[in-house]
Simulated scan of single mutants.
Amino acid sequence: MATTSSRALTLLSLLATRREWSCVELAERLAVSTRTVRRDIGTLRDLGYPVAAAKGPDGGYRLGAGSTLPPLLFDDD
């Protein structure tokens, strides 16, 4: 299992690659529960990232309209 900060960065990266993700899709990609995804979304919001949620069967998470992310730099680890 990845650490919370590592998982949050991965989640942020995923949200930047596609218009919308369902909670289940994100949970599968991160190998965590949907509850953990919801907590991590809350963490991103607390850090100031505008993550929007849509309810219902076609709902999901996406970065807020007009938001841009600074480039993320990762090392080999």
Rank of each mutant, 00 (worst) to 15 (best):
L26E: 01
E28S: 10
R45V: 03
V32W: 01
G42Q: 09
L44W: 11
T34H: 00
R35Q: 13
T34P: 01
R7M: 14
R35A: 12
L15R: 06
S22W: 00
K55V: 00
T17W: 12
A16V: 08
V32Q: 01
A31C: 15
T43L: 06
R7Y: 11
L14N: 08
L47V: 01
S22P: 00
T10V: 13
Y49I: 12
I41C: 02
A53L: 06
S33P: 01
T34Q: 07
K55M: 03
A53D: 04
K55I: 02
K55T: 03
A16Y: 11
A53C: 06
A31Y: 12
P57R: 14
T34I: 05
I41K: 03
Y61E: 04
L47Y: 03
T36W: 02
A16F: 07
R38P: 03
R18F: 11
D58F: 13
L9V: 05
T36D: 04
A8V: 03
R39T: 11
S13E: 15
T10Y: 06
V32I: 13
Y49P: 00
G48H: 08
L30T: 08
V37E: 04
E28N: 13
R45K: 14
E20Y: 05
D46H: 07
V37M: 06
L30F: 10
L26R: 01
R29W: 10
V37D: 03
W21H: 15
V32E: 03
E25D: 15
Y61H: 09
D46Y: 05
P57A: 11
T36Q: 08
R18Y: 13
P57M: 07
L14V: 11
D40C: 04
C23M: 02
L11I: 03
R19N: 14
E20K: 12
R29N: 14
G56L: 08
R18T: 15
P57D: 12
Y49Q: 04
L47T: 02
Y49H: 14
Y49W: 14
Y49G: 06
I41M: 08
E20H: 07
D46R: 10
A16C: 14
D46A: 12
R18D: 14
A8M: 02
A54C: 10
A52E: 14
A54W: 08
A53I: 05
I41Y: 00
L11H: 01
S22R: 07
E28G: 05
L12G: 07
T34N: 07
L11K: 02
L11A: 00
S13A: 15
A52D: 14
L26S: 04
E28I: 05
L26Y: 02
G42N: 10
A8T: 03
W21L: 10
A54N: 09
T43I: 01
E20C: 06
G42L: 07
I41D: 00
P50V: 07
L9H: 01
V24C: 07
T34M: 03
L44D: 12
R45D: 04
V32K: 00
R45T: 05
A8F: 00
L9C: 10
A27D: 01
R35L: 12
S33G: 07
L14K: 10
R7Q: 14
A31E: 15
V37P: 02
A31K: 14
R18G: 13
V37R: 05
G60P: 02
V51I: 15
R38N: 13
L30V: 10
L12T: 04
S22C: 06
L15I: 10
V51R: 03
T10I: 08
G59Q: 09
V37T: 06
S33R: 01
G59F: 09
S22M: 04
R38H: 11
